[in-house]
């Protein structure tokens, strides 16, 4: 989806967040989200997703940088922004002793332009649970209640922090469908997730956060394309990496070696795979555990995570060989 440059519903510039203990959770994050776009923030636990989203929701002022939601500062101009946003926190937020219906009625009374509570609960399939206390709901039902209340006021901007964590496969699909419908109706959605499938399926654009910084950003296709494809196999006995065809003509841009297993990275998968297999055929060797894999979001994500752990490993004096090339 093309972003209209003049309609950035969310604009984040060089955002920083530092916690009381001095921990810098967000270290200079910039991105923007256009109207009617679904934007996903991906990252491992502790990457800074929730810390970032909370600044967008206006729950805390940033330590540095700038946030604009619908053209306003969500922290200092709370009264202007809040009636136009819907928020689903990562967890909890409802008194356990109230029923689903009482909770929805309370939120409806505090939400401008609220749709009828029954309608909001029906959107997430909770209409039969109205008289059940929140403490008796399953984890998935609580997520759905949270989503229903975030949708209560037909918000222009929706912040969903891990909306499908704890949901079963069916509930997850239903949530995705609902989010897509909202997007098609013009709602701007910012969501965080650690399900790659969710980001790949749902997001128009995404950013992968790592240690408080954006490690990769773009459409799912762009982020994937920036990542190399991979060929891995076990070296035949008696062979070393140096015995393989020269990497340059093969189109291989880097490799990792872990015991006997070699992992080649390439942006020209067809050429590299063909030449490698021809070489194996001519040499009369079998490449055990051969795995040829085109780039995926999962690969991109794992690679970003691995870069950090690889760095840690080499600092710890590990013997694993890592030949890195920076991918822009």
């Amino acid at each position: 989806m093309e972003t209209n440059e003049h309609e950035h519903v969310i604009e984040v510039t060089d955002l920083r967040r530092v916690y009381g203990g001095g921990f810098e959770a967000v270290r200079g994050v910039s991105f923007s989200v256009g109207r009617g776009e679904i934007f996903a923030l991906l990252g491992t636990n502790g990457a800074g997703k929730t810390s970032t989203v909370e600044l967008l929701e206006g729950l805390a002022p940033p330590a540095g940088g700038r946030v604009r939601v619908l053209g306003h500062d969500p922290y200092t101009e709370r009264a202007v922004v809040r009636p136009r946003t819907g928020v689903m926190l990562q967890e909890g937020g409802f008194p356990s002793e109230l029923t689903v219906g009482e909770t929805a009625r309370m939120w409806a009374g505090c939400t401008s332009g609220a749709r009828p509570e029954a309608e909001a609960l029906a959107l997430v399939g909770l209409e039969r649970r109205t008289d059940v206390r929140v403490k008796q709901l399953s984890g998935g039902e609580r997520r759905r209640l949270d989503l229903a209340l975030a949708l209560l006021g037909n918000p222009e901007v929706l912040f969903l922090d891990e909306p499908t964590t704890g949901l079963d496969a069916e509930g997850r699909r239903a949530t995705w469908e609902l989010v897509r419908e909202l997007r098609d109706g013009g709602t701007t959605v910012l969501l965080t997730t650690h399900y790659l499938e969710e980001a790949e399926d749902l997001a128009d654009r995404l950013a992968i956060l790592h240690e408080g910084r954006i490690a990769a950003a773009g459409t799912p296709a762009e982020v994937t394309a920036s990542q190399p494809s991979r060929i891995s196999f076990e070296l035949p006995s008696g062979y070393f990496v140096g015995d393989l065809p020269a990497f340059g003509p093969l189109g291989v841009s880097g490799y990792e070696e872990e015991g006997r297993v070699v992992r080649l990275r390439t942006h020209e998968l067809q050429r590299a795979a063909t030449r490698l297999l021809v070489w194996a055929e001519e040499a009369g060797v079998t490449l055990r555990g051969l795995d040829v894999r085109s780039a995926s979001l999962e690969e991109a994500f794992l690679r970003i995570a691995r870069q950090a752990s690889g760095k840690d490993a080499s600092e710890a004096g590990s013997s694993s060989v890592v030949a890195e090339e920076r991918v822009a």
């Binding site: 009636p83 409806a108 009374g109 505090c110 939400t111 401008s112 332009g113 609220a114 749709r115 009828p116 309608e119 959107l123 997430v124 399939g125 949708l151 209560l152 006021g153 037909n154 239903a174 469908e177 609902l178 419908e181 909202l182 109706g185």
Partner: peptide
């Protein structure tokens, strides 16, 4: 599931 626009007023 459908997202119908509600009609509540400003709080």
């Amino acid at each position: 599931m459908s997202a119908v626009v509600g009609s509540g007023s400003t709080t």
